[in-house]
Amino acid sequence: MTTAKGAEVGGGGILHWLLQDTMDGMRRRRAILGYLFLLPTLLGIFIFTAGPVFVSFGLSLFRWNIFKPPDYVELANYQRLMGDVRIAISFGNTLKFTVLAVATQVSIGLLLAMGVHRITQTAMRYYFRTAFFLPLLMSGAAVAVVMGYIFHKEFGPLNYYLGLMGVQQIPWKTSADWVLITIVIMSAWRNLGFTFVLFLGGLSNISREVLDAADVDGAQGFRRLWSVTIPLLSPQILFAAVTGVIGAVQVFEEPFIMTRGGPGNASRTAVMVLYEAAFKNIEYGYGSAIAVVLFLVILAFTVAQMWMSRRWVFYQ
């Protein structure tokens, strides 16, 4: 067998083809070395990420509880999923949570970053950067437990201080109207540090000349923010939105620990029903079907964001 360039391939030919003391041979050796460096990562992705995803797709076509052989049920799990009210409610809750949480994290993160960016004292800047980032380092479970006490309707400190201001007791965790808001507040508080640091870095990278030019052109205050600062921060905003959506759609620990999805199903999320189906009810096929749908939802969100970003993201 010969290649287009006439080099023999096969047997000792491959070695010769690789070790040719020519520019082509050198390029081939470099390319192969590059692939060898990539191999561990590619194998890791295939075995630990892509592999389970494909297995999950396959499992979603079976009824399986681990202890007995799986039964092939075709699309029965998906049919059941379509008629499961709990699934519809939990995906709806997840959607509401995602919109509220991402909007809160991006907008407040941006405001805080702009505030801290204006501070000229280095020590104060370090202080605020640390203070806002610290909650992100805390265990989500621990945060949920502590917040559970803080948001307790009758005996929580939050309602106590609101009561001193004449505000009636708010059923933060026990009312279907309030519970998602409570979880958004808790989640935003914990995750703000990420968007804050991201935007602070973005603001630091905006060229002074561009801002001065905007000043000269008469763009100040909100006008400069809207027409100059935000467009220049748009790559960071896109990144924060995409990662925020991916994280928010998978929200689990905060509602699981604080409310167990209640009251009723008011704070039950998509990952929570997935967990319940697979690990609590030992219905791995059904849990996989939920996981597949969730995967498609996240994919759709991400593709939509990336597509829309072409209209508003500005790369310097």
Partner: peptide, 14 residues
Amino acid sequence: TIFTTGTSNAMSGA
């Protein structure tokens, strides 16, 4: 899960 969900549906006034 069904029991506790139904319980909180009633006990929250929903």
